[in-house]
Nucleic acid binder design. Sequence first.
DNA 1: ATCGGCTCGCGCAA
DNA 2: TGCGCGAAGCCGAT
Length: 450
Amino acid sequence: MQHIVSPDRLQTVKKGYPKGKAVLYWMLRDKRVQDNWALIAAQAYAIEHKLPLLVCFHYVGNYPDANIRQYGFMFRGLRETDYDLKKLSIPFYLLKGKVLTVLPQFISNNQIAAIFTDFSPLKVYRKQLQHVVDKITIPVYQVDAHNIVPVWTTSTKQEYAAYTIRPKIHSKLPDFLTEFPKLKFHPFHWKNNNENMDWEKVLIDLIIDRSVTELNWLKPGEKEAKNLLGNFISNEIAGYSENRNDPNYSKISNLSPYLNFGHISPQRVALEIVKLPENENSKAFFEQLVIRRELSDNFCYYNSYYDVFEGFPEWGKKTLNEHRNDEREFVYTPEIFESANTHDRLWNAAQKEMTVKGKMHGYMRMYWAKKILEWSPNPETALQTAIELNDKYELDGRDPNGYTGIAWSIGGIHDRAWFERPVFGKIRYMNYNGCKSKFDIKKYIEMYNI
DNA sequence: ATCGGCTCGCGCAA
DNA sequence: TGCGCGAAGCCGAT
């Protein structure tokens, strides 16, 4: 196994010898078949011990905080996962209910010998994994299948900014930015009693928020992600460097939802990018894809306060505290923000882009979050409002990139101090005039403010 | 239109 | 301990 997957990528969460009838990959963050180091490691281990390999995904089923926009995307992707795994003689199981009940039950019913899982730095996943590990006795291995350089290998601490993590990642890329081994048709078969899952029924049975509707303009799944990547590489990356901060420019990769749901591996995207001639476009995209994204995982992994005020850098907390009682020109409730009813038509357009399209342009996300800070009664409320809206409407919500981007905008994480002003203190300010000089504001507003 | 200053702390050279 | 330098911006001076 160690010859196939770098030992740096794999952590032993619970030691032990695999006594049982199958190896289980508990799929969490990386919901795909190809280019998945956790699945590759699980298969190598299963073959080494001459055991069948199973994959499971757990969900609660009754979860009003989730919505059909995100769950629809996720489950339609999982249907493709199920289909592709079957062809490799790897059965896929959906486990519904309380994780602490259904997972140990599944392990015991099927005499699972060992568990592999992928990695997320988010608290909800880490707590869940820890609770399950505490309840079971079989060996557990965790594989960072999301970062190109495993988060714990890149650095052993929270990095201060992009410039401090950049050389660390680049120095390790030769070891980690390598081609994936191919998944094999699994040689040890499992009597699959889970033949034909009714995926439409799974979706219908979900007790979740259905007011945030599914999207038509983005199709989920591994195949679609590869299509988008191919199209971006061959046609659309050409003007990336110059135009990426123009929200009217439509030639963007749109890969972030697929990266968030694990439908495509960042390493696959990076492998394709480095095949291109190195120029300002490929360099700028690589910076966003690799450095900025892996910096987000680093932040969430080493700072458990990634979604609250306490997680901001000292200078950011200090300056925001000093300006806590500054008079706000406008103060809006979360409901006013959510319904896009502020006085600022540019901000409202960004909010509508998010609620209608499920994906706000990267540049507007900064402006959007900074204005929430400006027009909220305090930084804590602003942070909470921004995170809740992001997690609810964005297809790439509930992702380290979202928490980090918002903490950058509101708390100065990974940024430096700037000229002091009311409310913001030394947090970098952005305003309407800046946008006006950078892109056609009218066009953007007309697109979303119908 | 272009440019420098604003401001902080990391990381490296001593 | 000192110092160079980052960095997805704003603003006023030229």
